[in-house]
Design a binder for these strands. Sequence first.
DNA 1: GGTAGACCTGGACGC
DNA 2: GCGTCCAGGTCTACC
Length: 325
Amino acid sequence: MSLAVPADYILARDACSYGYFLLAPNYWHVPTQTLWRVVELPSGPVRIGISQPGATWRVAKGRALVVSTHRAVGKADRPELARQVTRMLRLDEQPDVLAAFHRLDGRWKRLGSGRLFRSPTMWEDVVKTVTSCNVAWPNTMTMNARLCEVYGAPVPGLGVGAKGLSFPTPETIARQRPLSLRTRCRVGYRDARIVALAKMFVSGEVRPGWFEDPATPDEDVRAALIELPGIGPYAAHNVMQLLGRYGHLPLDSESVRHARTILGFKGPAPRMMKRLERHYAPFGSHKFRSYWLELWDFYQSKRGKAHTWDRETTGRTFTAAMLAG
DNA sequence: GGTAGACCTGGACGC
DNA sequence: GCGTCCAGGTCTACC
């Protein structure tokens, strides 16, 4: 299957733009510059590989993606497959919106970055965010791998392994006892919160369509997210950027380090947080992208371009905390 | 409305 | 070896 992309799209740059591309069931295969994962389609789980022809970025830029599947995918499945890939890679991000961001923050115009990787569903983004709170990055990777291994749907014919399993559906997680998640997936105290979230997605109490509707005001989305179990200010703002709402900063310990080491801020963390808000305020509704690309640029300056990171080695140790250690 | 303390887990660190 | 600390925070109970 072929999927058209915006004229400025480069898969290796835009898929490897946010840490979630390293979390199961996503798998970026460095030698072939291909993104593998299992997605859930109406006919069942399918493993897909997404690549972009072209020996160099200059050649690849704007060329249609090739989406391969491990089995034949019928016509009925194709719109859903396209929808999920489009969401992950933000192919529906309009070039004029990106251009507006580049006008405001010219540092990223030459490279063209600004589309940040996310999950095929809001559900997966929310769980990935909850599993990234109050833990070191390798632990987040473990939690996501185990969630897929224990509760993901196996793809027939591929055997059981993290690369042949889907991300668990909210329906599956909603049926589990919290203690089961805790012991089998090592999610710790996040167990009951994740199960509660799953139940809310299943019951319709959380409607992704409402959160993703551009007509829904940011502040309504923020208020609704904060009400969700396991979601505080940091997680709410992070889920917002994953929803394409970049006007709030998910400030955390990583931000404080960035402020201290790169921006040269001094003083206690709470004061630094306030100063960070002021620092990025000029970028308005685009401020997260300015902040994030700065952070991502720092990681890459230390560990090489993200599209060269192997999930099990560099991919486990790229955060500032790991670099410091 | 602002703020200590507890909270799973696993790796790093100091002794 | 073993205790302590803390990592891409959240939640509750207090004041």
